[in-house]
């Protein structure tokens, strides 16, 4: 029988290991259960999982946070716009955060990630599962980002 995974501690550990290496200062704010349909950020990065672990994982951020991530991922001092290379780096970011977090879960099951998708817009709402998802809120430098997930797996 599979269970809904609680990933907060693994997420924090992943961020502690990964973000400073990319020159990003962060702090964990809180985690809470979200309604099935909840409001999204202007920039969202979605990765789906299937097979051993199943569900969805979304990193949400402001444009400012996205630019910080792009700088960190592409090793640049400053970035002012989001071009194709930048979008690729954002997708690499979500794949790294998701993959490294799930690698910490004590399971023998294989982790299969789908291709990351970048979703942007205004007044975004998202529904990543039929049951309430969990959302972790983080501070990144002088802005915020979120990680929402609803993932099941066998431990």
């Amino acid at each position: 029988m599979s269970e809904v995974l609680e990933l907060k501690d693994h997420l924090i550990k992943t961020c502690e290991e990964f973000l400073p290496r990319k020159g990003i200062r962060f702090s964990f704010i809180k985690e809470k259960a979200e309604n099935t349909l909840n409001s999204g950020d202007p920039i969202n990065l979605l990765v789906g999982l299937s097979k051993g672990m199943e569900g969805n994982f979304v990193v949400g951020m402001s444009k400012k946070a996205a630019l910080y991530v792009i700088c960190g991922m592409t090793n640049q001092e400053e970035v002012f716009s989001i071009d194709n290379i930048a979008r690729n780096s954002l997708c690499d970011f979500v794949a790294a955060i998701c993959g490294q977090t799930l690698a910490k879960v004590p399971t023998k099951k294989l982790i299969s990630l789908s291709s990351p998708t970048l979703v942007t817009g205004e007044r975004i709402c998202l529904m990543i599962s039929k049951t309430p998802a969990r959302k972790c809120f983080f501070r990144m430098n002088d802005t915020n980002f979120t990680i929402a997930y609803n993932i099941e797996g066998e431990l």
Partner: peptide, 8 residues
């Protein structure tokens, strides 16, 4: 289905 799939 979540938690316990159809086969199980």
């Amino acid at each position: 289905m979540p938690i316990m799939d159809g086969i199980e």
